[in-house]
Design a protein around this nucleic acid. Structure first.
Lengths: 154, 154
DNA sequence: CAGTATACTTAGCTTTGCTAACGAATCAAG
DNA sequence: CTTGATTCGTTAGCAAAGCTAAGTATACTG
């Protein structure tokens, strides 16, 4: 939890409302991920790996730098993620057509399979809770997820 | 995405929708936190410290175990967080009235001050983006934050 | 062709989580 | 009262995932 309270100044204004909301989204994200992390142990693939792999599976092949930017991470971090995914046969490196400095990354069939399995496992407990929500609440969360992604990308 | 549809008569139904939404919330949370993390460097207090501190500031004094549960973290992790906060004079330990095994934790005045400063800094870039949203979108995100916290707590 | 810029890697640090194992305090039977 | 089980917190040590700085190879540019 970070701040779900109006204790600080200017609790009525748009300024303060935005800050309070930012706080709550921050807090909610921390706690959501901490809860989901517990499912990781059952899998050989951790969240950052799964996340990067899914960009390649759903978004198609791209370079390491592009992937790092998409994942909001620095190149060295992505290098390590890719090294692991490659070691496990989930991603392959291909020569870039025009630039030999670059590395084109592509998900393998095994990568697609593992993504599905890992994603399902990781997300299962969350999904089962979501199933208990009303249609209205689900729609709200779907929209919120889109808004959050949009904000982060700006 | 997973194709669970074949196994269920409600094809394209609640099952698959919940899984897809869980996936998106997961992904959005990862990316939101990665973006916010960049603000940490300016502060001496990192996100987990800020988060734990805020429970004490807004929720009042409590034991280490209670705080660990509130923060979705194991006791050893919380021990270390508290050790740092204590070293910086943001939290103090008090004897528990009835149980000498326990440690009661309380935020200091310095803790309240640092919380506000760190929170503002960390959340500022996010809040400025939120301010650009419509009232409708803000309301959606506020509701979503509450739903996410509720789901995690269950 | 020389110099600069870009793409990625390597090396090494930090933070934050975890489990296992422990001591101290409490509780529950007998 | 004592014994045994349980609970609270800590310590020790490991792994994941992020970062910066610095190095190499390739591409671009004047």
């Amino acid at each position: 939890m970070v701040n779900t309270d109006a204790s600080f100044s200017d609790s009525g204004g748009a300024e303060a409302r935005a800050e309070r909301l930012a706080d709550r989204l921050h807090s909610a994200s921390i706690h959501l991920l901490r809860r989901l992390r517990r499912q990781d142990d059952a899998s050989g693939v951790t969240a950052p790996h799964l996340s990067a792999l899914s960009v390649l599976v759903f978004g198609g092949a791209r370079t390491l730098g592009e992937l790092a930017r998409a994942e909001q991470v620095r190149p060295p971090s992505m290098t390590r993620i890719i090294r692991n995914l490659e070691r496990d046969g989930l991603v392959v490196r291909e020569p870039h057509p025009h630039d030999r400095r670059s590395v084109r990354l592509r998900a393998t069939d095994a990568g697609r399979r593992v993504l599905e399995e890992g994603r399902a496992r990781r997300v299962h407990s969350l999904a089962s809770r979501l199933r208990a929500l009303s249609a209205d609440e689900l729609a709200c969360l779907e929209r919120a997820a889109a808004l959050m992604e949009g904000i982060v990308r700006e």
